[in-house]
Design a protein around this nucleic acid. Structure first.
Lengths: 338, 338
DNA sequence: TTGTAAGCGTTATCAA
DNA sequence: TTGATAACGCTTACAA
């Protein structure tokens, strides 16, 4: 089937060593010999066997993209997809192959992190979707395989991460609401097992504090990033605090749910209640009203993750890459009506 | 670093052959020996090296998902993502690893199809996004590596495909429009290099023919599946045929563009003009008005593609898997106003 | 500048 | 039931 360097060696009347040297661009080889070998390889339509090479080189030029809970959440589609694209594009540029792998906490106990890496001789791993209580987490830090986490603020010798400055993003969002005159501001957060939820909550608290508004924990509803929990959150929040004029949501998907529920309750958005999202998914620019939100450059998260990983692969120490958030103000927020 | 069967052999006082046999569940081995080896492997935290195994077995238990033009089109996000999820889930179930790879026609001339397969010893490939004029196409049919195409109606000895019955889907869509009283029906098609465009055009023609409505080629605008070409299509169609009361679009994304443009022209949807989409992407259920469209089960395309591939891998002959379309009628279509 | 030979971790063939 | 040994396709000391 496949042409091997042995075949080329035979045809060129040299040893496999020489062929290997020619193919890999070593210079301790006579130019004519090299050219002849290259020509023959071309003629025979030779393709190197990456598997054999991996075996001897002990590295595969392959990186793993491990996504925890891929299909389970509908909320993360746009987000996940764009990260995948970013990772893929940058990995391709850098001539790394990409193996896609998904898990969920239940599966991880049988198939530990390292198994995935070792089995495929992955040079490095990009890991996303892990929760604070995820069993992978401790493995990652101890592991010998370089790893880049997305949205998990961990740094180790062989471990970097990329994430938005979530505290700042949330703070900007709530500051905006406050600047528009709102003071009765509720929050619909993600679940407490996501690092970003905690950070966004801090941003919310800090913005209130700065403005001299009392923080009340009962004003924060913990959902799960999905649309239905946005609806739930609104019901919960508005039944307890009917005076609420603005809601800050930790995801666009929940913001969409919130708006849906507000409409169902006969409230107008943004006239009666302003709603601020987080993520800036594609949908945010299509729903009615258009969503005001905190923009996250997901595609760039992907490319940056690969860059971080490549640096780790070169032996550099782990580091954090925190990207600056910025607001995308559209139609779902407005000055408080007097 | 890694524990190998050699290490186990040494510790167990047997040969590597015996270890291999024990690990692979052969029965020509004394149970006690086997159990002892298994226990030792467990103790030493042994993980098989898939790379070494691939080299000797000449198969990798890996399938390639090759996507042509992944990032270029914004239109295909939801579609592509769901197919990826389906492929991934099913592949994982069947214990195949997945390598993700993207190309575009320009890159293909340097990196031919077979190179990808051979380099990674892929057992099989799932290929999507290819156009009628794609250089990969002839390679695929000649290649020795089993391949499943998505939305490309090709069958070969080692080549299957999965696709919607696009002709039928389009026909149902246009029949619905006709049943609602429309007779002045334009079509905004995808580009002519997509197989599905041709099939959907046939569906449109056939539905008209059945109803005794004259087919006029000028009523068909060829776009590129993207939103902007939906807008363009509407401008084009309505300037020539102001009497148009319904537009059938070959993608939801174009339908959204079409609606946007109609609104900009001061037309109401669906009161003045009905708009029918195709795909049933997530967005279709969020835009205003909600999109009437032809549903495509993308996730299932992914799982079915893997199933087809596995059958090919078992030596079965290539086959077609054509899935039945069904309509999702929402708000963007309505009976023609008298 | 080139070749010999060992080795990467595994499976497979053949004898014992 | 077990063990040498070769093989998979490649890289790399080391020697010539």
């Amino acid at each position: 089937m496949g042409v091997t360097i042995k075949d080329i060696a035979k045809r060129a009347g040299v040893s496999v060593t020489t062929v290997s040297r020619a193919l890999n661009g070593y210079k301790d080889i006579r130019p004519e010999t090299r050219d002849r070998i290259l020509r023959i390889a071309e003629e025979m339509n030779y393709r190197p066997n990456a598997v054999a090479r991996s075996l001897v080189m002990k590295q595969s030029r392959t990186i793993g993209l491990i996504i925890s809970g891929l299909t389970r959440s509908r909320a993360g589609h746009d987000l996940t997809f764009n990260i995948i694209c970013g990772v893929n594009d940058r990995a391709t540029e850098a001539e790394y192959d990409l193996v896609l792998s998904t898990t969920d906490p239940s599966r991880q106990e049988q198939v530990p992190y390292m198994e995935l890496c070792r089995r495929r001789q992955l040079d490095g791993v990009i890991l996303m979707g892990v929760r604070t209580d995820d069993p992978y987490l401790k493995e990652v830090l101890e592991a010998s395989v370089p790893c880049v986490l997305i949205d998990v603020p961990l740094v180790g010798e062989k471990c970097s991460h990329v994430t938005l400055d979530n505290e700042r993003g949330a703070r900007l969002a709530v500051q905006h609401l406050i600047a528009e005159g709102h003071r009765q501001i509720g929050m619909i957060n993600g679940h407490a097992q996501a690092f970003v939820s905690l950070e966004r909550l801090n941003g919310y608290r800090n913005a209130l504090k700065e403005a001299g508004i009392e923080y009340r924990p009962e004003r924060v509803f913990f959902g799960d990033f999905e649309e239905s929990s946005g609806q739930e959150g609104v019901r919960h929040l508005l039944s307890r605090f009917p005076e609420t004029t603005a809601v800050f949501c930790a995801s666009d998907t929940m913001a969409i749910g919130a708006i849906r529920e507000l409409k169902a309750m006969g409230k107008r958005v943004p006239e009666d209640v302003s709603v601020m999202g987080f993520d800036d998914i594609e949908l945010a620019s299509f729903v009615t009203p258009l969503l005001s939100t905190v923009h996250q450059p997901f595609y760039e998260f992907g490319t940056r993750a690969v860059d971080l990983l490549i640096r780790l692969l070169k032996g550099e120490l782990g580091t954090a890459d925190v990207v600056e958030p910025h607001l995308a103000i559209r139609e779902s927020t407005a000055p408080r009506c007097p």
